[in-house]
Amino acid sequence: MNKVSVMKEIDEVTDIYCTECLVIRDLRKTRGKSGAHRFCIEQCTVGEQLQFLGEELLKVLDE
């Protein structure tokens, strides 16, 4: 993978799954922005995929 392809994939994932996510909207109302963000990082499968892609991006940048 190269830098551009990883970044495009991150953009695609966020555009498809995160932009209009009903769960995040509800959590922002009930838990606040940081609580909703915490959910995305710790429990959301899309968040897990984004973390993986972020790690891949770091690997590419280190090369």
Rank of each mutant, 00 (worst) to 15 (best):
M1V: 08
M1F: 02
N2E: 11
N2S: 04
N2C: 03
K3W: 07
V4M: 10
V4S: 11
V4N: 07
V4Q: 13
V4Y: 09
S5D: 13
V6N: 00
E9P: 04
I10M: 11
D11A: 11
D11Q: 09
E12I: 08
V13T: 03
T14G: 00
D15A: 15
D15E: 15
D15W: 07
D15Q: 12
I16D: 12
Y17S: 05
Y17W: 09
Y17R: 03
T19H: 02
T19I: 12
T19F: 03
E20R: 14
E20F: 06
C21E: 04
C21V: 03
C21I: 01
C21F: 01
L22T: 07
L22E: 06
V23S: 09
V23G: 00
V23D: 02
I24M: 14
I24T: 15
R25T: 06
R25E: 11
D26Q: 13
D26R: 15
R28I: 11
R28Y: 07
K29P: 04
T30H: 08
R31Q: 11
R31V: 04
R31F: 02
R31M: 11
R31A: 12
G32R: 10
G32K: 07
G32N: 08
G32A: 04
K33Q: 00
S34T: 12
S34I: 13
G35V: 08
G35S: 11
A36H: 04
A36W: 00
H37A: 10
H37T: 08
H37V: 06
H37L: 12
H37S: 08
F39Q: 04
F39D: 02
F39V: 01
C40L: 10
C40N: 09
I41N: 05
I41P: 04
I41W: 00
E42S: 05
C44L: 02
C44Q: 05
T45H: 10
T45G: 12
T45N: 13
T45W: 08
V46F: 06
V46I: 15
V46R: 04
V46N: 05
G47R: 03
G47I: 01
Q49D: 11
Q49Y: 09
L50I: 03
L50Q: 00
L50N: 13
Q51R: 15
Q51N: 10
F52Q: 14
L53I: 03
G54D: 06
E55L: 11
E55V: 12
E55S: 13
E55Y: 09
E56Y: 00
E56P: 03
E56A: 14
E56Q: 15
L57I: 05
L58Y: 06
L58D: 14
K59V: 10
K59W: 08
V60E: 15
V60G: 05
V60R: 09
L61G: 00
L61P: 03
L61A: 07
D62F: 01
E63Q: 15
E63R: 13
E63W: 04
E63A: 14
E63F: 12
